[in-house]
Amino acid sequence: MSTAAYPESWQRLLDQAGPPPAPSLHLASAAPGGGDLHHTPKPWNDAAGAAHSLRTDTDTARSGLITAHAGLDTSGAGLLSVTALKTVLTSWEQRLGAVRDECADLEPKLREVARTMGGTDHAVRSSIAGYADPVPADEKGR
């Protein structure tokens, strides 16, 4: 326990809460004390769908930003703020482009995880199926 000094009001609350629980590690998807661990592709496919939507929305926003600033050079000629605005525009174009590209790269990888884990689950299930209902041994134990 640390030796940090807390104000009295905080110390009372900490004392009421008691000591922190001992650290432990559990699989979120496994029942405490055992149980079956099941894989589902839904979270991975949902994440891939979110990446796809974010890529699409980011690209739309980037295109809208570019369109909104079209003709800035001619309509704002002579204004000092045009240079600063173009610098900000370029920065946002790059940022939004990077997000779009990252999402485009991430989406198929997330979908592949869902497929791979599903295949792994099937392979493991098949490989242990013989142990669940083994062939009875003959009288010599074979």
Rank of each mutant, 00 (worst) to 15 (best):
R111P: 00
G130N: 03
I128T: 15
R95H: 10
D133N: 15
D105Y: 06
P136F: 07
E102Q: 12
A129K: 12
S91T: 13
V135N: 11
T120F: 12
S127C: 05
R100L: 02
M117V: 14
T83V: 12
D101N: 11
G119E: 14
P134W: 07
E107W: 00
V124W: 11
R125T: 14
L89W: 02
T87N: 10
R100W: 10
P108I: 06
P136R: 10
P108C: 09
A114D: 08
P108R: 06
A123Q: 12
R125G: 03
L106M: 11
R95C: 02
V113A: 08
T87I: 05
D121K: 05
A98L: 05
T116Q: 14
V135C: 08
S126H: 06
E93Y: 00
I128H: 07
L89V: 04
E107C: 03
L85N: 04
Y131F: 13
R115K: 15
K109L: 15
K86V: 02
M117G: 03
V99W: 07
E112A: 15
R125F: 08
V99D: 03
G97N: 02
P134K: 06
I128R: 12
Y131A: 11
Q94H: 09
M117F: 11
L110T: 02
I128Q: 08
A137I: 10
T83A: 14
G97K: 00
K86N: 10
E107Q: 15
G118F: 06
Y131D: 08
G118E: 09
R111T: 15
L96S: 01
V88S: 09
V124R: 08
E112V: 03
T87C: 01
C103Y: 01
D101L: 09
D101Y: 01
Y131M: 11
D133W: 10
R95G: 08
T120S: 15
D121T: 06
D101F: 01
T87M: 09
T120D: 13
R125D: 10
E107T: 08
Q94V: 12
C103T: 00
G97H: 01
M117K: 04
C103Q: 06
A104F: 07
K109M: 07
